[in-house]
Design a protein around this nucleic acid. Structure first.
Lengths: 207, 207
DNA sequence: ATGTGTGTGTTATATTAATAACAGGTGAAT
DNA sequence: ATTCACCTGTTATTAATATAACACACACAT
């Protein structure tokens, strides 16, 4: 967290895209990359990429490009990618368990340490321990800031509980509406709304 | 699809939020709403809401507000919300099936008609018919434009196949990178990237 | 070594989006 | 009826973001 200038929100939202692409390139054995190449890869203008990168220092070299490994390292150092980030899952039903297994999680951003559910005794086949929601304050891992929300009732109450216990970021698959205090960030995933947006875009855009 | 002026992209992305809120309000028995009330509800400035709505016509009345039912009707008519939208699911594994059951889908944006999978014979317990991906061109419902992607291999090939068969919008849970031609819209859902973004925001913002 | 072409980082410009300000139409009260 | 307070729709202003332009540092070839 050594970022000097204020990084624009739009830029912050693109960093994960870059990081994902860079990791993939590294896995493919690529050691250096130019902004234009990366631009084609992630469908973001090369100018935008260079400006985004510039917030983290002078990372590239003229006439050469960027070193992939260096870039990944700097992203990790400066933005606080914590491979030991402790993440909790709230609601260990079908969706929760599916998410657990679907993403190949292995320490890219940390790990899901445990899950909490209203009826923990009913959950079978989860790959992490499942505790009752009422035990949250005792069982929550120390330093845990991120929660994945896969519940369908008592949403606001649960969110309040999470915030009270130190959660600062929530990826939510819950369909219910809820609100959080300032300083808590939410990524809402709603398939129905996403489809709606797609329909609106295909209908309204470029006509 | 009778929208006259060009609707900004940012506005288009907020319409699903409004629609969801309005439907909830209607369910609660609310018949009229003011921009300020809605603003508090969805955490969007009242001015922004009024400007967003104005693209669809003069929907409100001074000193009164908006009629909830009228608003929902107008959204549906003008933006092409099609309650019979035929949606297909690609990849009927654990995640696909979980999504199918998790969202209470019932004709809010249409319905998932059927699913396709590389190994359809291995899928059990799906609530819709599951066909082989190789049958796509024969089995795809006519007029189908939207697909939900829950696969983990041969992603680009599958996407190409979808586009060739008329798909114009994709909600993707696939972790692989893929590209689409212009005119095809993608909503990417990547829990790992979402968490990354949350970590970046909590680290970099308001420090 | 030395020049040359290349691709960065930055500055300048254009575009898009958000907020503020306000004029005027409308409902409700008297 | 008439008045008044209210809330919309729009215009004006500010802020945020994206694109374009370019100077200069560096790798690379000779």
């Amino acid at each position: 967290m050594t970022v000097e200038k204020k990084v624009p929100k739009a830029t912050l939202q693109r960093y994960p895209v870059y990081l994902k692409a860079l990791r993939r390139l590294k896995a493919e054995g690529v050691t250096r990359v130019m902004s234009k190449t990366l631009a084609d890869y992630v469908s973001i203008e090369s100018t935008t990429i260079r400006r985004d990168f510039s917030f983290l220092g002078n990372l590239g070299k003229q006439g050469y490009g960027y070193d992939v490994n260096d870039l990944i390292q700097i992203f990790s150092d400066q933005l606080g990618v914590n491979f030991d980030e402790k993440i909790i899952l709230i609601g260990a039903g079908n969706l929760g368990k599916a998410l657990l297994n679907y993403n190949n999680w292995n320490h890219v951003v940390g790990e899901i340490v445990c899950a909490f559910d209203l009826e923990p005794e009913r959950i079978t086949g989860a790959s992490v321990p499942v505790y009752g929601l009422n035990e949250l304050s005792q069982r929550i891992p120390s330093g845990c800031r991120i929660a994945i929300l896969c519940i369908s009732k008592e949403t606001q109450e649960t969110v309040d509980l999470l915030v009270k216990n130190g959660i600062r970021g929530i990826v939510s698959f819950a369909v219910d509406h809820f609100s959080v205090p300032p300083g808590v960030y939410v990524k809402q995933v709603d398939v129905v709304s996403s489809i709606q947006e797609l329909v609106f875009e295909t209908n309204a855009l470029h006509q």
